[in-house]
């Protein structure tokens, strides 16, 4: 019970103090909010890109185009070797005619084009979908390297390059976010510590009196620590609100038109929202500890 009473006292004092100097505290909360927003925005973009990459890699398909006039025996050998590979989920052999039919079905307006060429231009191919757990760029590269020089294989086509580029982009965005977020988090710690220090200065007499009538150091410091954490946490809530609003805006106005990402739902991971608020509280905690460490409380 005494612990709860002390905590209740800390929170009550912290709230009173936040309200008493609401202007400067709003400024501090705003600074933290903007910093966390920038960090959160980078992380959200990274998460969304990552989701796109994951969705794409789930459908990774490798197509082996076969040489013209390939002996069925060689094709069958290739098929059976492919089937034995652990990365292969499904294997479909597309004959030249089937490829032509598919083209006609997919591109209705161009369906007469092959007739003008006098000959079916489509080669025979084997389409492979890759098993879960074998969809990493490294694994795909291994698989393709193992078969691209096999007898009968003319050319291999796969989406790896795009996936690799996107994965690099995700890493870059995340790294940039980390660096920028780190710098801004430091700025927030500095802001909070100065705001708390101002409060400590303003209330130094009061704090001395508390010590003189027997308050422990923890009891005198508690409200300031809670105040810093509340400032940080509120800054986190501001950041989450800004992110949420921003995402809604982006999702509605910009990406609706984009075929590439439009189908991917734009989202903010719930864990990220919690992490931002908790991160804000951590920033506040460090800020108030820094300022209390410097003062005589």
């Amino acid at each position: 019970m005494p612990v709860f009473r002390a905590l209740a006292y800390f929170v009550q004092e912290a709230l009173t103090s936040l309200w008493r100097s609401r202007l400067i505290n709003a400024l501090s909360i705003g600074t933290i909010g903007v910093s966390l927003f920038v960090l959160g925005a980078f992380l959200t973009v990274a998460s969304n890109l990552n989701a796109v990459v994951t969705r794409w890699t789930e459908k990774v398909q490798v197509t082996f185009y076969l040489e013209d006039g390939l002996e069925p025996r060689i094709r069958e050998m290739l098929e059976s070797r492919l089937k034995d590979d652990p990365a292969v989920e499904t294997l479909t052999t597309i004959s030249r005619q089937a490829a032509l039919d598919r083209f006609r079905a997919l591109f209705h307006d161009l369906r007469t084009l092959p007739d003008d060429l006098a000959e079916n231009p489509f080669p025979e191919s084997i389409e492979i979908t890759v098993k879960n757990g074998h969809q990493s760029p490294e694994e795909i590269t291994r698989f393709v390297t193992a078969f691209e020089k096999s007898p009968g294989v003319e050319e291999v086509q796969y989406d790896l390059l795009w996936i690799q580029r996107l994965t690099t982009a995700v890493r870059l965005v995340r790294g940039l976010g980390g660096v920028l977020g780190g710098i801004l988090a430091l700025a927030s710690i500095f802001t909070i510590s100065n705001v708390i220090r101002l409060t400590v200065y303003a209330r130094q007499d009061e704090l001395d009196i508390m010590r003189l009538v027997g308050a422990t150091r923890a009891y005198v410091r508690g409200p300031f620590i809670v105040e810093g954490m509340l400032q940080g946490g509120l800054g986190g809530v501001v950041a989450v609100a800004l992110l949420w609003g921003g995402l809604r805006f982006v999702a509605r106005d910009l990406l609706a038109a984009s075929e590439l990402l439009g189908r991917a739902a734009i989202f903010m991971p719930t864990e990220l929202a919690f992490a931002i608020v908790l991160g804000g509280m951590a920033v506040g905690l460090v800020g108030s500890l820094v300022s209390l460490g410097r003062s005589q409380v």
């Binding site: 010590r211 003189l212 027997g214 308050a215 422990t216």
Partner: peptide
């Protein structure tokens, strides 16, 4: 703090 809690002090400048 424990020592101070066992002593009542009336300060000259009140310290309220």
């Amino acid at each position: 703090p424990e020592l101070r809690r066992s002593i009542g002090v009336v300060f000259q400048d009140f310290k309220l």
